[in-house]
């Protein structure tokens, strides 16, 4: 099997190198003779088999009209090359970029399809390797925005692989496709993992005052029931699971500045810590509190708002991925590499 693997590896590197040379990375690509490939589909092969059957029957029964039918089918098959090719030809694909996502979600890359006034492109299929197929028809408007999805696994900057644009229109006998490197990137935040906030270390934040004062705004964690606690705060579900009588703790941090710290999740490995920090960034962003981040190498002072949240999440996503740190822009491809 290792031989097979070696051969397929060799082959795929060759293909990649060839593609890199002949269909270079651009942010906008127009499909034409040099970057469209075309081959018969399995349905096309079935059609060819039927044509062959008809041809042999025509020979054996000496049926002139059956010859005619076989030739008509051959002509249709050949003509279909042109029609399928035409369905992709002159289609312009522009990579717009992708919004940031959390690892494990599908990253959505936006692609702009543009057509020439006299051409229509039907039954287009766009997909990334291992991604879902997005179908599109460019019939009415001059251009169409479509999202192509790609599953993500790891945090960091996700460089979109080559985008497959293909079509089988009109007869499904041929598949024309192009593999475009639109140099799209998107930021992948760590997967949020919910967890209670260890109160012990939460006070290590900077700024005035402690971060948690018992309150009623935000769920904070569970602690053992003590006499005098309100029955409204008893975690009945946990009691039902036989976990003993616990009380939900809420924090009231209306005018607080809160610092999320690397040390809060001591004992876990780095990725697990990032995931938990991510969860708490999201959680705090929804609450009315200023929050900051302190992880090795990165300190972001407390603040609030969407931009701030994005800064924190980006920092988590790019932690120790130094080569990308300068690209904190959520849409790197917005700058455009080439025209």
């Amino acid at each position: 099997m290792s031989l097979v693997n070696a051969v397929s590896f060799w082959f795929s590197t060759r293909v990649q190198r060839w593609l890199a040379r002949n269909v270079p990375a651009v942010s906008i690509a127009t499909l034409h003779r040099r970057n469209i490939f075309i081959l018969p589909t399995s349905h096309g092969l079935l059609y060819v088999a039927a044509t062959t059957l008809i041809f042999i029957t025509a020979i054996n029964y000496v049926l002139s009209l059956a010859f005619g039918l076989a030739f008509l089918m051959v002509s249709l098959f050949i003509l279909c090359i042109l029609h399928t090719f035409r369905n992709l030809q002159h289609l312009t694909v522009k990579g717009i970029g992708g919004d940031a996502v959390f690892a494990g979600e599908d990253a959505s890359f936006t692609v702009l399809l543009q057509r020439q006034p006299e051409r229509m492109h039907e039954a287009l299929e766009l997909k990334f390797p291992k991604g879902l197929i997005t179908r599109a028809d460019l019939i009415e408007g001059e251009q169409l925005r479509v999202n192509v999805y790609l599953p993500t696994r790891r945090r960091g900057v996700l460089k979109a692989p080559r985008l497959l644009v293909q079509t089988r229109f009109p007869l499904g006998l041929w598949r024309a496709w192009s593999m475009l490197d639109l140099s799209m990137r998107c930021l992948v935040y760590p997967t949020p993992v919910s967890c209670p906030l260890p109160t012990a270390v939460s006070n290590s934040g900077v700024g005035k005052g402690s971060s948690t004062q018992p309150g009623s705004d935000d769920f904070h964690g569970l602690r053992n029931y003590q006499l005098g606690d309100s029955l409204k705060q008893v975690a009945w579900k946990n009691l039902a699971r036989g976990q003993g009588l616990k009380v939900k703790q809420f924090v009231d941090s209306s005018d607080d500045r809160f610092m999320l710290d690397w040390a809060m999740f001591a004992g876990l490995d780095a990725e697990a810590r990032l995931s938990r920090l991510c969860y708490w960034v999201l959680k705090l962003a929804r609450s009315d509190v200023d929050y900051g981040l302190n992880i090795p190498g990165v300190v972001i002072s407390p603040g609030r708002g969407d931009v701030h949240r994005h800064r924190l999440l980006s920092a988590l996503a790019l932690w120790q991925q130094s080569q990308y740190v300068e690209r904190l822009n959520p849409r790197p491809s917005k700058t455009g590499d080439a025209v």
């Binding site: 020979i59 054996n60 003509l79």
Partner: peptide
């Protein structure tokens, strides 16, 4: 599609060598 195929069909009909039954 069918009409566009007809010229090629005619050429093939006229020119593809006919062989005796197999």
């Amino acid at each position: 599609l069918v009409l566009q195929s007809i010229p090629l069909t005619l050429a093939l009909f006229i020119l593809v060598p006919r062989i005796a039954p197999l």
